[in-house]
Simulated scan of single mutants.
Amino acid sequence: MELNENTRLEDLIKEYPALRTGMADINPRFKMLQTPMGKIMIKKATVADMSERSGMPVDELVAAIAAKTGLGAADGSASLTPAAEPLPTARAATPAVEQQDELGEPLSERPAEMDAEPQVERWGKVDGFKVIDVRKAHGNFFPGLKKRAEETAVGEGLHIVQSFEPIPLYDVMAELGYEHVVRRGDAGEYHVYFYRAEQGEDSGEIAFRPIALLNFPVIDEELGDVAVNFWNLTWNDDKRYLSQETRLLLSMANALGAGRMRQASRELIKAYAHGCDSRAFDDVFELVAWNQGIGNFASEIGPSTLFRAYRTIKDQEKRGVPRAEIVEMLKERFGEQNPDVGVQ
């Protein structure tokens, strides 16, 4: 099999299955190959297509793929032939880990190469991590998982299994003092190993993480994967031009225009916590009144939880209360416990 710009990605992955996850080590943009949309791309893309998508020169990409598979001729060409020690796949399994949690079901396998990870070697064996398989959990499993995470001692860990990569959990767990490693299993499921390196605490921002996305697999597992990756691309991609504060303001305005007051309230609080000047909210509400009409503003927006949060900001600023204290007040009054704001 020849490896060049015309080589089809589907053919490469058929011969070397580990490339589907291993490509992300070559370039972070290839991580999307692990998503449902990536499955479609794999069937159509060539090495040249992947080069164009990632911005990597073709020759560098060819060399990286050859190195990733442990192959390559001595003269520097990249003719793929069986290697003596091929890349270990993320789909092998070790002896059974029979643990069970009230949030999920027993799990019998985990990716084998975990023990070889330098980070995992520093943690020690992960066999003792509490296994929580939430693939068949009904409803929002996050409150129970967060409680278990808060109760886990420093030096111990959790092994989460989900049908999609639970990206929104990473920042949440990091605030609680956790490091993590993620691997794919034999059936395409995600195994995320969280190790508590220090005693972190809930800063209060956890309430406004997109945890509701974790409900999508209840409808369809692939939809869950798509939704989480779409959120990650929208909010965490470093290619975005607008500042986070501006993006949150636009998201608040869009939600308000669509009548989604719950989301608009959350975006306002996040924007203020990110440092947005309250005078920007003045502009947004003025434009809403202009575009939607004074009557609609008076009857629908003025009495809303969103506007109460806005008035709280303005009132407290007039009293000279520091921003940090106002943010804490907003989290207390308009957090997940507020039925007009919470999504858990």
Results as ranks from 00 to 15, higher is better:
residue 1 M to T: 12
residue 5 E to I: 07
residue 8 R to I: 04
residue 9 L to Y: 05
residue 24 A to N: 02
residue 25 D to S: 09
residue 28 P to Y: 05
residue 33 L to Y: 08
residue 50 M to G: 07
residue 53 R to E: 13
residue 58 V to I: 14
residue 63 A to L: 05
residue 64 A to H: 05
residue 69 T to M: 10
residue 78 A to C: 12
residue 84 A to F: 09
residue 84 A to G: 07
residue 88 P to M: 04
residue 92 A to S: 15
residue 92 A to W: 02
residue 96 A to K: 12
residue 97 V to Y: 10
residue 101 D to F: 13
residue 105 E to H: 11
residue 107 L to K: 08
residue 107 L to H: 05
residue 110 R to V: 04
residue 117 E to Q: 15
residue 119 Q to W: 08
residue 120 V to N: 02
residue 122 R to H: 14
residue 125 K to R: 12
residue 126 V to L: 11
residue 129 F to N: 06
residue 131 V to H: 07
residue 132 I to Y: 09
residue 132 I to E: 03
residue 133 D to C: 05
residue 134 V to F: 02
residue 139 G to K: 06
residue 147 K to Y: 07
residue 149 A to P: 03
residue 150 E to G: 02
residue 152 T to S: 00
residue 153 A to Q: 10
residue 153 A to P: 04
residue 154 V to T: 15
residue 155 G to A: 00
residue 156 E to C: 10
residue 159 H to V: 07
residue 165 E to L: 12
residue 167 I to G: 10
residue 171 D to W: 09
residue 176 L to E: 06
residue 178 Y to W: 04
residue 180 H to G: 03
residue 183 R to H: 15
residue 185 G to C: 09
residue 186 D to Y: 12
residue 191 H to Y: 04
residue 194 F to R: 02
residue 195 Y to S: 03
residue 202 D to N: 15
residue 211 I to R: 08
residue 215 N to K: 10
residue 222 E to C: 09
residue 223 L to P: 04
residue 227 A to Y: 02
residue 229 N to E: 15
residue 230 F to M: 10
residue 231 W to P: 03
residue 235 W to D: 04
residue 238 D to F: 08
residue 239 K to R: 13
residue 239 K to S: 14
residue 240 R to P: 01
residue 242 L to E: 09
residue 244 Q to K: 13
residue 247 R to C: 02
residue 249 L to V: 11
residue 257 G to H: 05
residue 265 S to H: 07
residue 269 I to W: 03
residue 269 I to R: 03
residue 270 K to G: 06
residue 270 K to W: 07
residue 275 G to L: 03
residue 276 C to D: 06
residue 279 R to E: 10
residue 280 A to S: 10
residue 281 F to L: 01
residue 283 D to F: 09
residue 284 V to A: 07
residue 284 V to R: 02
residue 290 W to I: 12
residue 290 W to N: 09
residue 297 F to Y: 12
residue 298 A to K: 10
residue 310 Y to K: 08
residue 310 Y to M: 03
residue 315 D to N: 09
residue 327 V to F: 02
residue 334 F to G: 05
residue 334 F to H: 09
residue 334 F to L: 13
residue 337 Q to W: 12
residue 340 D to N: 15
residue 343 V to G: 12
residue 343 V to R: 15
